[in-house]
Amino acid sequence: MQQELIAALIVSVVAFFVVYAITPFLIRELGKRKLAVPDVNRIGGAMIPRPGGPAIIAGILISEAVLFLVFPSDTRNLKIIALMITTFLAFIVGLIDDRKVLGGWFKPLALAVSAIPIVLIGIYDPTGVYDPNLTFPIFGPVKIPALYIGIIILMIAITGNTINSIDAMNGIASGFMTIASFSLTIALLIMKNYDVALISLPLGFASLAFYKYHQFPSRIFPGDSGVLALGAMYGVIAIIGRAEVVAATALLPAIVNSFLFLSSVKKIVEHRQIKNPTTHTDDHKIIATKEKDAPITLVRLLVAGKPLSEKEIGFTIFKLAIFSGILAIITAFLMEIRI
């Protein structure tokens, strides 16, 4: 147990400080190469460097590699390999999308392909990576070995795109992921899944370190490479931690956002290709657009009643994330109860 605590401390510190140290260099380098996009909500539309994904993936991969090499464990190693490969593939998908705006279907399909290594490693060692039973709180597990492969593929595509869709304003994606991933880590501890709780720590700490630069007013945007890597890693943790329902619960505000978006647009489309669901007041607060054909999103609903500043919107979403995180922790307790 003492060794696990030391490992937890070291991977957390490595994940945090790698992202914290690399991001300022990345901001300078992206600035020099003029890889920047306008911040549409900022007065004057400042150009913000993008993508911050390379710093995030470096923090995740280095800390997971430390866990793999310095603290090897038969029950953890295959899970770490599956997580590193899938997260890296999702990062590459995002990097391609950062360079070139591709169709709405590209990301879900490419993320689904990113999930294949988990399935293949699961075939190589059927007990080493995931358990093909979906476990529900109170009611227990349902055995669905054939269907579970589909769930793995869907999970990575959904978590990646869901986090991508909430990356609408300064700091929201990284701040939301910090809250959701720490909630998931606590839930994994409650479910006595200590190995995966340990593996999940770099996600929360890498997100937290990146939030330092991404919070309002942003100095860097994560880009698709950053948010898809974070979202895919979250999905992998849900699968290897047998915590699919808990993970989905912690992600509910982001799922609400995707649900509202899809139910109003009624097709899968790249978010950069649709009308902005919000506009600005004279004092540069954000308010819902009057355009009827603009999509309904979480942010649009939050500012439908009264205009809010970007910072206020961020904190409102974080409160929703904390609320869902508490529900996820309650769900983890319910996992131990059977009727």
Binding site: L134, F136, I138, V142, V256, L327, T331, L334
Partner: peptide, 17 residues
């Protein structure tokens, strides 16, 4: 709405199991 979604997930799980 979030509570409703959560309860629907739990109920759906119950039906499945």
């Amino acid at each position: 709405f979030i509570i409703m979604m959560w309860l629907l997930i739990l109920a759906g799980g119950g039906i499945l199991v």
